[in-house]
Nucleic acid binder design. Structure first.
Lengths: 145, 145
DNA sequence: ATTATATCCCGGTTCTCCACTGGGGTTTGT
DNA sequence: ACAAACCCCAGTGGAGAACCGGGATATAAT
């Protein structure tokens, strides 16, 4: 299971949006990029993809930016990665051995493995990650004292 | 979960070796490549990798070829894919956000997803695949009659 | 209205990896 | 000796990832 740079950037940005979701004033690309040290022109493309997938909404013009389109607990990690990584709905015939019996049993095993991974990514939401981060930050403070 | 061409080729070759594992005369690259329609010079590299991982043994010279190093039910799909795909020993700092709290929780989720996928690939052996293929071939014959 | 501020859209660039090819060299059975 | 196989190293073409840049467009504030 590979975590690509794209997906990580997108998730970091979405976590930032999730943090500020209660006050609903938009957050700009530049700010997110600065906070998370992401190249801003690259992040722009990722946010555009997320917008087309309906995960974020954008406000153009001055004082514009991005906000989550849904509540942080209603956005799963699977949705994010499928939006970003492009869930090529047609994976027909990328391999030539799709029709042989051997190819089919192999592909079925991989399908099952992929489904198992997807199940994990589907059970976690943006909210879950922010909560986990917050509780860990709390722990760091305790050790600091 | 992505099934690369490399892993698929390697598995097809290993399934072929598993088929002929009872009679223990080696099978040549050319034969495997011809049966499964794999570019032979490419398959050569993959088999070399599998040999270095200890999954197959090779016999050089005339009448040489490859045989499974272990019984087909003692080789899991996970071993194969880890051998082929390169168990990249250094994944240290491929991402710069490895030390931030957000980066850590994200990476942990991905770790869990990867583990889930690995568990599936580990429970299947070469034997399992050949048996599944054989039973399905049996089924095809029944429908043919 | 004008301007500053943001997103939007299109393209190019560099880099790495995958799939594949080629040229030899080495081992082994006949 | 000789042919049949594996062995090793090196290169190529295409695709995608990770960027960067130049404008066009929409919007809030003046």
């Amino acid at each position: 299971m590979d975590l690509s740079c794209k997906s990580e950037y997108a998730l970091l940005a979405l976590l930032e949006l999730a943090d500020r979701h209660s006050q609903n004033e938009p957050l700009q690309i530049r700010q997110i990029a600065a906070i998370q040290s992401i190249p801003d022109r690259y992040l722009e493309q990722l946010l555009a993809t997320l917008r087309r997938s309906g995960l974020v909404r954008s406000q153009r013009g001055a004082k514009g930016g991005y906000v989550l389109a849904r509540e942080p607990w209603k956005i799963t990690l699977l949705e994010v990665v499928e939006s970003i990584e492009g869930t090529d709905s047609q994976q027909v015939e990328t391999h030539r051995s799709a029709k042989t019996l051997e190819g089919m049993v192999i592909r079925e095993a991989w399908q099952e493995a992929g489904d198992a991974a997807d199940a994990v990514l589907q059970k976690y939401t943006l909210q879950d990650l922010t909560e986990k981060r917050n509780s860990r930050q709390q722990l760091d403070l305790m050790y600091y004292i």
